[in-house]
């Protein structure tokens, strides 16, 4: 029995997600990621059920665990009630906990995701917040996206939002006391420690690569240098 397998078994998603994979490949057939990336949820499920520590460690340091989009289509179709999507979530969790994510180009992207998403949660109480969702980062939002950014308050006012206002309503300002509770929840449940660890390892990596923090964030947000794709 591998130690890393035991660590994975501490994760409820792993316990729920791994039953007995029969290697039928139905998950890979249905998977949106498997058609785009060099990704095979069947082989990942098989690797973890073999309980070999060296193989699991290689997986935790790999690019492949970062390819899944967590749509969970695999759960519906597996004939043996496995959930490769949940196994991936447990692998990503352990990869971050052990600092292995930093070895993968796609894994290193966690730093920018943490900055944006957890920044929005702790500062505003939303995962997505219009004043940090910028057209320059989202040109696919189109000419309408640019128009919205240029007229944010007027458009939300026209459509009945309560942008940054008091009381209830769409995009209201969430009271500071509630943001304080979210921060305490982060502290008590390990999210703050996780964010600190990812930041520490990311800044070390940025230093190794000769980037400032800002350059590193821009780099991991916009560039991939490895061939990740199906051809």
């Amino acid at each position: 029995m591998g130690k890393l397998f035991d660590k994975l078994m501490e994760d409820y998603r792993f316990k729920e997600g791994l039953n007995a994979c029969i290697n039928c490949g139905t998950c890979t057939a249905i998977c949106p990621a498997a058609e785009f990336y060099k990704y095979d949820p069947r082989s990942i499920t098989n690797t973890v059920q073999n309980k070999d520590d060296a193989e699991i460690e290689a997986l935790l340091k790999s690019e492949t665990i970062w390819y899944c989009g967590e749509c969970m289509s695999c759960i519906t179709r597996c004939p043996r009630n496995n959930a490769p999507g949940l196994i991936i979530m447990a692998l990503r969790n352990l990869s971050q906990e052990l600092g292995f994510f930093i070895d993968a180009e796609k894994g290193r992207q966690q730093y920018v995701l943490n900055k944006v998403l957890c920044g929005n949660i702790l500062n505003f109480g939303y995962c997505v917040y219009p004043r940090t969702f910028l057209y320059k980062d989202h040109p696919e939002s189109g000419t309408t996206g640019k128009w919205i950014e240029d007229n944010l308050e007027a458009i939300h006012n026209r459509l009945g939002s309560n942008l940054d206002g008091s009381g209830v309503g769409i995009l209201r300002k969430i009271p500071q006391e509630d943001l304080d509770e979210l921060k305490t929840i982060f502290d008590v449940t390990g999210a703050t420690a996780r964010l600190d660890l990812i930041e520490k390892l990311s800044l070390k990596k940025a230093d190794e690569l000769g980037f400032t923090q800002e350059e590193y964030i821009e780099h991991i947000f916009t560039i991939t240098e490895i061939d990740h794709y199906q051809h």
Binding site: I121, G125, S166, T189
Partner: peptide
């Protein structure tokens, strides 16, 4: 007015632990 995000997008981007 006191409800917030559920944290779901951060969770499915693997930015916050399940317990959080």
């Amino acid at each position: 007015e006191h409800h917030t995000t559920c944290g779901g997008i951060a969770y499915h981007s693997d930015s916050i632990p399940q317990e959080t």
